[in-house]
Each structure stands twice: as structure tokens, then as C-alpha cells.
């Protein structure tokens, strides 16, 4: 933390400096770090204080694990792989993507509460609120994935890959979710109430996660949907995680470019989302006002 704190470089006579204004501003870069950290800490404090957010984030995927692996599992055949092994990567992807929607509803809530107006009258970095938001949601997502991996372990899911490969898979899930958080944050700043975001995001997430290879093989879908599923970025994420965790068994990757190059597709997708949505979010943040 001492690395991030800018106060070490400020003049000694700080007491007199705060009269009639703030001390000389720190440099852009150190302000970016320290303000981003201040807001991240704020969000994490709130997460710690009401852990129901975390419980809410994992409850649904846990139910999905039980539903698919214990109830539907017997009727879903995956050629060349055990269904529980096949399923879990889909669950992880679904967990982090749903988790990212929290970035949207939290931004909408902050707007509604008026705290955004407070932030916008402070001489802080204009990206700090967004950085703090996406950072803390990354932590939330990391905790959710760890809990889901524990759940998977209980129902018999195993990693058949090296430690490095496992960590790469985990990193890819979190990278994708982090980038998707920025997409949702923009949506959160564009709606009129936090309730809207929950409905609106569901409309987007439902097709993205269900018309994909998360729960079934894309080749078993009707042909139009099969094409959609193969080019769906969520499918690439699931396919990449499946490969890196060693859960594909003898199953070949579907015959579509994103499926054949799943890891690369996820990296490109995440980079695209960041390049497009980070500037859009910052621009939007500079213009919004609560009421």
C-alpha cells in the first residue's frame, strides 16, 4: 500500500495546505493508482460487510451444478467425455459472466444513491470509480469461481492438466469476466434504475450462456443455433477453460475457427471489449449526473 499512497511525496506543511483547497495534486499516474485503490477498498469493505452478494453470486451456479450433474446428467450424453467433467467449465463461465453483471447494477445503484455526484465533485481521477468497481467485482468473481471449483470437486470434477495450465484457465475466466464488467458498467450507467439492469442483463446473458456449448455440445443444436453457438464468445471461453483444465476427454473441438483457436479467441475478445468499452465508460462517467 505504501507504494500506492501518494502522501509521501506531498509537501510537509500539509496542515496549512488544506485551508482553502486541497494540496497540490499528485501526478496523473499516482492519482490513478491511489484513487482507484481508494474506491476498490470502499467496494470491498461493503462486500465484506454484506457477504450476501457473494452468496447470491454462487447460489444459482451451485443449483445448476446439482441440476445438471445429478438430475439431467443421466439424459445428456457427451461423446468421449464424462458429463460432469464436461459441465464444470460451462458452470465456471456462467458464474463469472453473471458475476460481471453486478458491475452494472452497482453502478446504477451508485447513481441512484447520488454518491456518483459526490465523486464527480471531487478532484479525483475520472476513471477511478470504474476501476474500483471492476477491480472489486474481479475479486467477487475470483471468490465465486473458487467456491464453484470446490463444489465441482465435491460432485467429482477433476483437473487433468498441469498446474500452469490450470492457472492459465483460471486467469482466462477472470480476464474475460473483467473485460465483460466494463461492458456491464456502461449498461449500468445508461439505465434509469438498478432494477432495469437486472432484467436487461438477463435478456443478454440468457442467449449468450444457453445458446453455447456450456451445457450441451453445440453440434446437437439446430443448425442455425449451432453456428451461433460456435461463434459465441462464451463458447470460446468454455472451450478454452475445458481444454486448459483437461476436461475435453477424447472429444474433438467443433469445426469452427473460434472453437479450434479458443484461447486466442478469448484473448482477442477480452482485448476488444477493453479497447472499446473502457474509453466509452470513462466518457460516459464524465457526463452522467444522478438527478
Amino acid at each position: 500500500m505504501s507504494v500506492l499512497a501518494p502522501e509521501n511525496r506531498q509537501p510537509e506543511n500539509r496542515r496549512s495546505a488544506i485551508r482553502g483547497g486541497t494540496p497540490e495534486p499528485p501526478s496523473e499516474l499516482s492519482m490513478w493508482f491511489s484513487d482507484g485503490w481508494t474506491v476498490t477498498k470502499r467496494n470491498l469493505t461493503k462486500l465484506k460487510r454484506s457477504p450476501d452478494m457473494l452468496i447470491f453470486a454462487v447460489l444459482q451456479p451451485i443449483m445448476f451444478v446439482l441440476l445438471f450433474s445429478q438430475i439431467y446428467g443421466g439424459s445428456i450424453q457427451v461423446e468421449g467425455a464424462d458429463y460432469t467433467q464436461y459441465l464444470m467449465a460451462g458452470i465456471f463461465a456462467q458464474t463469472v459472466i453473471f458475476g460481471s453483471t453486478f458491475s452494472g447494477s452497482a453502478m446504477a445503484q451508485d447513481l441512484k444513491d447520488g454518491i456518483i455526484d459526490r465523486f464527480r465533485t471531487l478532484p479525483m481521477s475520472s476513471s477511478a470509480v470504474l476501476i474500483g468497481r471492476t477491480n472489486s467485482d474481479l475479486v467477487l468473481n475470483a471468490l465465486s469461481v473458487v467456491i464453484m471449483m470446490g463444489t465441482g470437486f465435491v460432485v467429482g470434477w477433476r483437473v487433468n492438466a498441469s498446474m500452469g495450465s490450470f492457472l492459465a484457465g483460471l486467469g482466462l475466466l477472470l480476464l474475460f469476466s473483467y473485460a465483460f464488467s466494463w461492458v456491464m458498467a456502461l449498461l449500468g450507467m445508461s439505465v434509469k434504475s438498478p432494477e432495469v439492469i437486472n432484467n436487461a442483463s438477463f435478456m443478454i446473458l440468457f442467449p449468450l450462456t444457453f445458446i453455447s456449448n456450456a451445457f450441451v455440445q453445440s453440434q446437437n443444436l439446430p443448425s442455425a443455433l449451432e453456428t451461433f453457438a460456435n461463434w459465441n464468445p462464451v463458447s470460446a471461453l468454455v472451450q478454452a477453460a475445458r481444454e486448459l483444465f483437461g476436461n475435453t476427454g477424447t472429444l474433438p473441438a467443433p469445426d469452427a475457427w473460434p472453437m479450434q483457436n479458443a484461447v486466442l479467441t478469448v484473448l482477442i475478445g477480452a482485448a476488444l471489449m477493453l479497447v472499446v468499452f473502457v474509453p466509452l465508460c470513462i466518457r460516459k462517467f464524465r457526463l452522467i449526473s444522478s438527478r
Binding site: 499512497a5 501518494p6 502522501e7 500539509r14 486541497t22 499528485p26 478532484p123
Partner: peptide, 9 residues
């Protein structure tokens, strides 16, 4: 902190 007063201040 967001006015950059520093942690202690």
C-alpha cells in the same frame, strides 16, 4: 483520500 489529503490527514 479522494481530495488527496493523504492517509493520516
Amino acid at each position: 483520500r479522494l481530495y488527496h489529503l493523504g492517509a493520516r490527514e
